[in-house]
Design a protein around this nucleic acid. Structure first.
Lengths: 186, 186
DNA sequence: TACATATGTATGTTATAATGTACATAGTTA
DNA sequence: TAACTATGTACATTATAACATACATATGTA
């Protein structure tokens, strides 16, 4: 996508939203506070709107900004996690399987992680704004972050900011596994 | 946040990114192809940039649009899933626990789902652009979508577009459970 | 069929976005 | 200390964003 064409893509996406809701330009103008003439220009790709105008549009239509600037190609894909090559320590006691890799559009990735009995993994700080959503599958996990420790048992989950160092520890005598969704806000 | 102030927020966020990377306006101008004078105006909130200019900036700096328009408050939260009230059928054979509810900023939500032996759940089409990322925890699942069926065993996962009807079936004689991340692109 | 209304586009006007250049200030070096 | 460089802001110019209004066409109704 060339940098000078984003306004044309926005036009197509805005038109698609409007058509899917069977709204006229007049109605969108009322909902958004942007003039009918300007909305028409934007949809035809004839004009390069400012951020304030786009902000009015997304707020008035209750859509997300990203829905105007991005597209997608839905597909079905089955993943056999045991076939994946995990990231982890050289001695293999911590294994992170990239089940659904990072995608710029979605800004998250999903791993299945396994930690052997009584082993731990020290994670450096991710970039600012990175968060983790972790659901325990099996075993028992101790997470340490900001000098606080949290015990996560089966049937529990934890959400935390991962932009500071943190430690995962398996406190039990059997393997611990969990699913973690890492969200990158920037 | 008033709609007429988004350009000021963008200015603050852009300045924060630049400072965190110790870049001068000249360097950002080179990276992005946007004039130094304009970058200064944007940072000071003195100007309301067009979408094309912002596009140049995010591409040149390798950041996301959302990092310019949004902010966040990181927290740690532990969730005990068994304490949650699930969504599901009246007879309780399909239970969806909202572990991490939807958040407009992140645009996804995460459920733990349980289906009793030999039971199924028919899901209507979600809105256009909705996708699911499903990781099996326990048991065996059959997913049917677009007249195609997929068997998901333990250790496997599946990603599909959820904007059309689909059916989850537990084919085994024990409870099936899985984690699913539902992503809303718009 | 004639008329009224809805809808999207064209046009002209005004304000401002975006740039190149000049300028003021701070920091560094000889 | 003087000269040079880096940095961000001010200023003037040009192109265009955004609007209000007019217009052309399509649609619906009596």
């Amino acid at each position: 996508m060339e940098t000078e064409q984003i306004h044309k893509k926005i036009g197509r996406n805005l038109l698609a939203v409007r058509k899917s809701r069977s709204l006229s330009l007049d109605q969108v103008a009322e909902l958004t506070g942007v003039s009918k003439a300007m909305l028409g220009q934007i949809e035809r790709g004839d004009s390069n709107p400012t951020i304030s105008v786009l902000w009015k549009i997304v707020n008035g239509l209750h859509i997300s900004f990203t829905s105007l600037i991005e597209n997608e190609e839905p597909t079905v894909s089955v993943v056999h996690i045991e076939d994946l090559t995990p990231f982890g320590e050289e001695d293999g006691e911590y294994r992170a399987y990239p089940v659904f890799p990072f995608n710029q559009q979605k800004k998250f990735e999903i791993y299945k992680v396994e930690i052997d009995p009584y082993c731990k993994h020290e994670s450096e700080a991710h970039n600012e704004g990175v968060e983790e959503y972790l659901l325990l599958v099996k075993g028992k996990l101790k997470l340490t972050i900001d000098q606080e420790s949290y015990i996560i048992n089966e049937g529990s989950a934890i959400h935390f900011s991962a932009d500071r160092p943190h430690i995962y520890e398996n406190l039990s005598d059997e393997m611990t596994s969990f699913h973690t969704t890492i969200f990158y806000s920037s």
